Amino acid sequence: MKHQATPYLTFDGHARDALEYYKNIFDGEVLNVQTFGEADFPTPPEADERIMHAQFKKGELFLMMSDTFPGQDVERGSNISLALDMESEEQTQSLYDKLSEKGTVLMELQDTFWGAKYGKVKDAFGVTWDLNFQKNK
């Protein structure tokens, strides 16, 4: 892995509000906001203004966050996963296989429109992991 795991927060349509809240609380900077409507990915029109991915930074504090599709449930307090930026496709596949063996696959490991190999797995202890290998960096 390239660095420490990054907390990834998920919201039910409130990611933009959360970004502003954390910006004010921590006096930080909002980075790289992309909505579902801006993405090269088929989404329902009611999701167009929801945040697909955003980043927040204040010094060493770094958070990523997104909204769900409309109608998907988010349990407050359990709306966090750990994002890992992997060093190779092989490392990503290996970790995905190990985590999913006794866990639950939330998104199959696959090539994405953002140029990465990505998968999401909830492990045997209920911890959710986002595995991302950016191919075109």
Rank of each mutant, 00 (worst) to 15 (best):
F56P: 04
E20Y: 04
D40V: 14
M64Q: 14
Y22A: 05
I80G: 11
F41P: 08
F41I: 01
N79L: 03
G71L: 03
F26D: 12
Q55C: 00
I80Q: 10
F56W: 03
E75L: 13
P42F: 11
T68L: 05
G37T: 13
F26I: 00
G37Y: 07
D67K: 08
D40G: 06
H14Q: 14
E60W: 08
T35Q: 13
E29R: 08
F69N: 02
G28C: 11
E75C: 14
F69T: 00
E75A: 14
F69K: 13
E60H: 09
F69P: 03
D27K: 15
S78F: 02
I25S: 10
S78C: 15
E60F: 01
D67L: 09
L63D: 09
R16N: 07
F41V: 11
R16H: 12
F41E: 07
K23A: 09
F56K: 11
F36G: 07
A15C: 14
G28Y: 10
G28Q: 12
D48Q: 14
E38P: 09
P70I: 08
P44N: 12
P44D: 12
S66G: 00
T68K: 01
R50E: 03
L61H: 05
P44K: 12
F56S: 10
S78E: 11
R50V: 03
D17S: 08
Q55G: 14
S78V: 04
D27W: 01
A54E: 02
L61P: 12
L63Y: 06
F62H: 15
G77T: 15
G59C: 13
D48I: 12
Y21W: 01
D27L: 12
V30K: 02
N32H: 02
E49Y: 11
K23H: 05
V33A: 00
G59K: 10
D48N: 15
L19E: 07
A18Q: 11
R50C: 00
L63R: 03
G59L: 12
N24S: 12
S66R: 05
D27F: 05
N24E: 15
S66C: 04
M65Q: 09
N24W: 01
A15I: 02
Y21S: 08
E38V: 14
H14A: 13
E75K: 12
K57F: 06
E60G: 13
L31H: 06
Y21M: 06
K58R: 11
E60P: 10
V30C: 01
V30H: 09
D17V: 00
